[in-house]
Design a protein around this nucleic acid. Structure first.
Length: 826
RNA sequence: GCCGGAGUGGCGAAACUGGUAGACGCAAGGGACUUAAAAUCCCUCGGGGCGCGAGUCCCAUCCGGGUUCGACCCCCGGCUCCGGCACCA
C-alpha cells in the first residue's frame, strides 16, 4: 500500500494542470459562461489564512462550475500599488517596484501550491504601466465630463502616511491603515463626483438580491439619503438670505434661533468685526481634528449678532455659530428647534435660548419649563398658526408646500455621501495625468502621451513625496503652449486600481485589451461577475467604489452592465484564541507551515469544513489533523476499489441488501453535496456528507480489505468510489485526481461531468416513522414509504410503547406526515 | 441612539418550507493491535432519575410569554455578544 504523500502528488498535479493549461478559457468556447472572482490580494509577500480561506472558497465554486459544464473565468492578479511598498522600500533600501515584483513572484508561487485553478494567462498587476495607463485614460475622460475636478477642501490628513484619506478610509477618527488619528487640513485636491451617482448607487442596491443583506444595509447607511426642505431666512446685519436644510419642516414654527457652522460665510463675515467671535471661530478650527472626534466634544456656540427673520411669521431670531454644525452637510446652517431636536435642546438650555413646543405627542402635554429631553417623535402640531391641529407627518408636507408657494423654500434631497478625494501625496501609485501651466492652467496630458510613467528603481526620501522632490519627473512642458510647466505630482488613491480590475480580466493579454481599457465585446461576454468573494471589511470601501466605476465604465460605453457583481459572498474572518489572526496579537498561523506539514488539500479541506463560509472560522490544530485523517481514510479505501474491467458495468438486477444500502448512500450523498453547493455554498455540510459516505464505504468493504469483493459488491463499491472522487474534487483536487488515476479512471476527474443522483435510489422501501403522543416522541416504526394514513395509524395505536400514554382514551385527533411522523392527540 | 447579524453538548457545528434536537468533525474515556509508542481500527460520549439488565421516564436549543397536534425554526417582550453608522439637522 502506497502511503499518502501530499507533496509529491500535489506537485505532480499542479505541473499537469499547468502543462495542459487546464483552467484557461479563451475565445470560441460556446459553453455557458461563469465568472468566478475572489478579491485580488495586496502583494505583501506572504499569503495569510484569510487568503487561503477566500481562495479555497472561490476555487471550490470555480471547479464545481467547470464540472457542471460552464466555461469558467477564474483569474488572479495583484493590487500592487500602495503604501506598504514605500514603507518597506525605506526600511530595506529597495525600490518599491523591486520589492513589489519580488513579492508577487513569491505569492504567485504560494497560490500555485494551494492548487488554485486560475487562468494565469490573464494575470494583472496594477503597478504595470499597461494597467495604470487606463486609470489615466479614464481620468482624462472624467476630467472632460467634470466628474473629476479639483477643489480646495478640508481633508483628512494622516501624518504618518503623509497623505490625504477619503472619508471611507477614516475609521473611528483614525487612518484605516496605520490607525493614527486623522487631522483636518485645507488642501487642493482632486476629487471624483461620486455624489452625482448617489441616487443610482442607492437605487441599484435594490437589484442586488444576491448580496448579503447587511452589506446592502451598510451601503444604504453610508449613502445616507434624506429628504427635506431648504429654507431661506432673510438676514439683518449680514448678506442674506441664509439657506438652512431641515428634514422636519413641521417644526418650523418652533424655531427660536438658527445655527451655522463656525466656518460658514455668515460666521466668518461676522467674526471680522467681532474679535470675541473671531477667537471662538479660531478655537473651533484648532479643535476640529476630525469629524469623528467632534462627537465627544462639548456643544459650544456664540451669538454672531446677525438676526434671521422667520420666513413665515416674520419673527426675529438670533444666529449662532455652533461647533456641532457641519459645513460639509446640507447648507452648513440649520434652523434650531430646541423642543424637538435633542442637540438644539441642549444648546438652548446652555445658552438660555427660548424653547417653543409645536408638536404635542398623543396623551401628553409638553411644557418647555419642565422638559428634560426634546420630543423628537410624531404628534399633533400646536402653536403653529394655520397648521395647528395637523398631525406632524402630513404637516411636514403642508409646511413644505406653504414654503414653496411663498418662494421661501424648496424640497431637497441630501446625501451623506461625499465626493471621493483621490489625490495622494505619495509615490507608489498612478500619476495623475495633468500638467500645471502658468499660462494655460490645468492641462490634460494628451492620450497619445499616455501613460505618464512612474519612475522606477528609485530611492525614496525619508519624508514627503518623492515625485514632488524629483525635478526629472515634474519638470515638463505644457502640452498646450509648450512653455515650461510643472507636472502634477499627486498620485491616485489605490482604490481606483481595484475599482475596475474585474472588468480588465475579461480582455487582459488579448489584442483587444492592448487597445482598450475594457473591450466591449469581451465585457459583454463575461460581465457581470457571477460570483464575487471577499472579506466583509470591504463592504463599503472597495465595493462602493467598484459599483461607482462600473457605472462610469458604462457611461463611457465600455460595458453594458450597471452593477459589477451579481452575487456576493462575504467570508468570515479566521479567528484564533478569540481574536482575528494578526501579527500584533501574535496569534498567526502561517499557511506555508501548514502546507509544509499536511499539504494543500488538508489546508483547503479544513478551512471549508470548520465553518460555513460566511461565518468566522475558529482555528483548530486538531481540526486540521481531522481533515488530514479524512484524506488518509479516503486514500486507504481506494486501495479496495476493483479495476474498471473487473466488475460488471451494469448494476441492474437484484442486489443484496447491503449493496442496495450503499447505492442509496452514494446517490443520496451526490444529491446532498450538490444541493449544499447549489443552495447556499454550505461546504461544511457538503464535506460532512462525503465523510458519511466514506464511513459507509469503510464498513461495506471491511471484510475484503485483504482480498477481493464479489462482482455485485465490487461494482457497487466502485460506483461509490467514483462518485466520491468526483464530489471531492472541488474541495481537495490533488488527492482526487491522484486517486482517480489510481483506480483507473479516464482523463481528469475535474474535467468530467458532475455526477448525477439517480432519483430511484434516493428513496428506500421502508422508512422510519416517528410516533408521538401529544407531540412527545414515544416510538419509532419501520413502515413502507407509501403506507397510507390508516395503516400508519393502526400500527401506531398498536404499539405497546404508545398504549400506556393513551391511558385508555380514544385519540381525539391523529396527524400523519407520510414518511416522517404520526402524532396522536388525546 | 439607529441599522444589521448571532446566541444549540467540553469545542467547531448540523437540523430543508414548523415534524426524531445535536448529523459530521474535534476533544475526552474505554478497548483491540504492538515489547512499547506512533499510526490505525472498534465502543461510549447533552444533563438527570429509576432499573441487575434489556430498558425506561423527566429535563434540555439565551430568558419570559404566545400561536400550534407539534416550535432551535413563527409572533410579542426582554437579556447578552458581535459588526456597521453615528452632532447628517
Amino acid at each position: 500500500m502506497t502511503p499518502y504523500q501530499p507533496h509529491q502528488i500535489e506537485a505532480k498535479w499542479q505541473a499537469r494542470w499547468q502543462e495542459t493549461r487546464a483552467f484557461a478559457v479563451g475565445a470560441g468556447d460556446d459553453r455557458p459562461t461563469f465568472y468566478c472572482l475572489e478579491m485580488f490580494p495586496y502583494p505583501s509577500g506572504k499569503i495569510h489564512m484569510g487568503h487561503v480561506r477566500n481562495y479555497a472558497i472561490g476555487d471550490v465554486i470555480a471547479r464545481y462550475k467547470r464540472m457542471r459544464g460552464f466555461a469558467v473565468l477564474h483569474p488572479m492578479g495583484w493590487d500592487a500599488f500602495g503604501l506598504p511598498a514605500e514603507n518597506a522600500a525605506i526600511k530595506h533600501k529597495l525600490a518599491p517596484d523591486v520589492w513589489t515584483r519580488a513579492n508577487i513572484a513569491d505569492m504567485r508561487g504560494q497560490l500555485g501550491r494551494l492548487g488554485l485553478s486560475y487562468d494565469w494567462g490573464r494575470e494583472v498587476a496594477t503597478c504595470d504601466p499597461d494597467y495604470y495607463r487606463w486609470n489615466q485614460w479614464l481620468f482624462l475622460r472624467l476630467l472632460k465630463k467634470g466628474i473629476a475636478y479639483r477643489k480646495n477642501a478640508k481633508v483628512n490628513w494622516c501624518q504618518d502616511c503623509h497623505t490625504v484619506l477619503a472619508n471611507e478610509q477614516v475609521v473611528d477618527g483614525a487612518c484605516w491603515r496605520c490607525d493614527n488619528p486623522v487631522q483636518a487640513r485645507e488642501l487642493e485636491q482632486w476629487s471624483l463626483r461620486i455624489t452625482d451617482y448617489a441616487q443610482e448607487l442607492l437605487d441599484d442596491l435594490d437589484t442586488l438580491s444576491e448580496w448579503p443583506e447587511r452589506v446592502v444595509a451598510m451601503q444604504k447607511n453610508w449613502i445616507g439619503r434624506s429628504t427635506g426642505v431648504e429654507i431661506a431666512f432673510d438676514l439683518e446685519g449680514a448678506e442674506g438670505p441664509l439657506a438652512v436644510y431641515t428634514t422636519r419642516p413641521d417644526t418650523l414654527m418652533g424655531v427660536t434661533f438658527v445655527s451655522v457652522a463656525t466656518d460658514h460665510p455668515v460666521a466668518t463675515a461676522a467674526a471680522r468685526s467681532n474679535p470675541e467671535l473671531a477667537r471662538f471661530v479660531e478655537s473651533c478650527r484648532e479643535h476640529a481634528v476630525s469629524e469623528a472626534v467632534l462627537e465627544t466634544m462639548e456643544k459650544r456656540g456664540m451669538d454672531t449678532g446677525v438676526v434671521a427673520i422667520h420666513p413665515l411669521t416674520g419673527d426675529k431670531v438670533p444666529v449662532y455659530a455652533a461647533n456641532f454644525v457641519l459645513m460639509g452637510y446640507g447648507t452648513g446652517a440649520v434652523m434650531a428647534v430646541p423642543a424637538h431636536d435633542q442637540r438644539d435642546f441642549e444648546f438652548a438650555k446652555k445658552y438660555g435660548l427660548p424653547i417653543r413646543v409645536v408638536i404635542q405627542p398623543d396623551g401628553a402635554s409638553l411644557d418647555p419649563a419642565t422638559m428634560t429631553l426634546a420630543h423628537t417623535g410624531p404628534g399633533a402640531m400646536v402653536n403653529s398658526g394655520a397648521f395647528s391641529g395637523l398631525a406632524s407627518e402630513p404637516g411636514r408636507e403642508a409646511v413644505a408646500d406653504a414654503l414653496e408657494r411663498a418662494g421661501r423654500g424648496v424640497r431637497k434631497v441630501n446625501f451623506r455621501l461625499r465626493d471621493w478625494g483621490i489625490s495622494r501625496q505619495r509615490y507608489w501609485g498612478t500619476p495623475i495625468p495633468v500638467v500645471h501651466c502658468e499660462q494655460c492652467g490645468v492641462v490634460p496630458v494628451p492620450d497619445d502621451r499616455l501613460p505618464v510613467l512612474l519612475p522606477t528603481g528609485v530611492t525614496l526620501p525619508e519624508t514627503g513625496s518623492y515625485l514632488a522632490q524629483s525635478p526629472a519627473f515634474y519638470e515638463t512642458t505644457c502640452p498646450s503652449c509648450s512653455a515650461p510647466a510643472r507636472r502634477e505630482t499627486d498620485t491616485m488613491d489605490t482604490f481606483i486600481d481595484s475599482s475596475w480590475y474585474f472588468a480588465r480580466y475579461t480582455c487582459q493579454n488579448t489584442p483587444q485589451g492592448a487597445a482598450n481599457m475594457v473591450d466591449r465585446a469581451l465585457a459583454d461576454r463575461w460581465l457581470p461577475v457571477d460570483q464575487y468573494i471577499g472579506g466583509i471589511e470591504h463592504a463599503i470601501l472597495h465595493l462602493l467604489y467598484a459599483r461607482f466605476f462600473t457605472k462610469l465604465l458604462r457611461d463611457e460605453g465600455l460595458t453594458a452592465v450597471s452593477e459589477p457583481f451579481k452575487r456576493l459572498l462575504t467570508q468570515g474572518m479566521v479567528i484564533k484564541d478569540g481574536a482575528k489572526m494578526s501579527k500584533s496579537k501574535g496569534n498567526v498561523v502561517d499557511p506555508e507551515a501548514l502546507m509544509a506539514r499536511y499539504g494543500a488539500d488538508t489546508a483547503r479541506l479544513f478551512m471549508l469544513f470548520a465553518a460555513p463560509p460566511e461565518r468566522d472560522l475558529e482555528w483548530s490544530d486538531s481540526g486540521v489533523e481531522g481533515a488530514f485523517r479524512f484524506i488518509r481514510r479516503v486514500w486507504a479505501l481506494m486501495e479496495r476499489v476493483p479495476a474498471p474491467g473487473a466488475v460488471p458495468a451494469d448494476l441492474a438486477g437484484d442486489l443484496p441488501d447491503a449493496c442496495k444500502a450503499l447505492r442509496r448512500t452514494t446517490h443520496r450523498t451526490i444529491a446532498k453535496v450538490t444541493d449544499d453547493i447549489e443552495r447556499s455554498y454550505q461546504f461544511n455540510t457538503a464535506i460532512a456528507a462525503q465523510m458519511e459516505l466514506v464511513n459507509a464505504m469503510a464498513a461495506f468493504s471491511a471484510d475484503w480489505a485483504e482480498g477481493a469483493p464479489d462482482a455485485p459488491r465490487g461494482a457497487v463499491y466502485r460506483e461509490a468510489a467514483e462518485a466520491l472522487l468526483a464530489l471531492l474534487c472541488p474541495f481537495a483536487p490533488h488527492v482526487a485526481e491522484e486517486l482517480w488515476e489510481r483506480i483507473g479512471g479516464q482523463g481528469l476527474v475535474g474535467a468530467r461531468p458532475w455526477p448525477e443522483a439517480d432519483a430511484a435510489w434516493l428513496v428506500s422501501d421502508m422508512v422510519t416513522v416517528v410516533v408521538q403522543v401529544n407531540g412527545k416522541l414515544r416510538d419509532k416504526l419501520e413502515l413502507p414509504v407509501d403506507a397510507d394514513e390508516a395503516a400508519a395509524r393502526a400500527a401506531a395505536l398498536a404499539s405497546d410503547k404508545v398504549l400506556p400514554f393513551l391511558e385508555g382514551k380514544a385519540p381525539r385527533r391523529v396527524i400523519y406526515v407520510p414518511g416522517r411522523l404520526i402524532n396522536v392527540v388525546v
